[in-house]
Amino acid sequence: MATGPRRRRDAEGLALTLALLALAVLWLLPIVWVVVTSLKPTENIVRLPPEWIPWPATTEHYREVLFSSSRTARIGRAFLNSLVIALGTVALVVLTAAMAAYPLARMRFRGRHLVFAVLVGSLMIPNAVVLVPLYVLIQRLGWLSTYQGLIVPEAATTFAFGVFLLRQFFLTMPGELEDAARIDGANAWQVFTRIVLPLSQPVLAALAIFAFRSAWNDFLWPLIAVNRPEMFPLPVALALLRGAYAAESYGPIMAGAALSAVPLLVVFVVANRRIVEGVRLSGLKG
């Protein structure tokens, strides 16, 4: 009796899965097209009908954007810039947000509700609103076209979210270990670094990934805060490969686009579960 409907449901499930797989392949075609284009010799790129097999294949575009010393927008250098900026932002955000979230979750003091309310409220401030005054500030500090000029504002933007995320996690942590450490004579800083932080690795990783992604991909702020082209991060360098009066070939542009996806792809493959967990933590309690 029961096997009939179940088999039918199994068959339905299989058909659904296959349909979804097909859709996923279709969904990723734009990315495939980027990679395929980046591997074609220049004279084969603009072809109708479109050719999906990059044969003969070449790595000339990758070599050009990465290594050519005198090339347009120096994607190789931009790649490094982005890496420094993203890692710097991660370090700064994780440190400051963890330190700030800890007392907000585990200590009682005057003003903590106000501080938390201001931080959460600030999540609503569009970045574009502070663009001009931030530029004036960074210029006065002499930080235009520097790493700190990109890292610090980037970290300040993600900070409030980080506090929010970490506080939620700290609130759910059992207090026994902390108490035990305190009885052993540990001060607040020692409790924080030896007990709380190690226990919070998953959520710290989630925040780190979030901060990395937003710093790696940010476009508007570096577009204005960097005047010296050798300090451009990847998104800006890529966007400016395309001139208005002279058309750059798609080859190097697509090679640069493909390269820009690599670090997050690696993070994504290695830390898939953390990302899902991070999105979950950030999304559901929002």
Binding site: L144, S145, N227, R228, A244
Partner: peptide, 22 residues
Amino acid sequence: EQQRIPWAELYAKLQVAVPAGE
């Protein structure tokens, strides 16, 4: 050390960079 960006952006950057000493 050559830096090459599309003209429109180049001019906008030049305008800002030179007063900033960059």
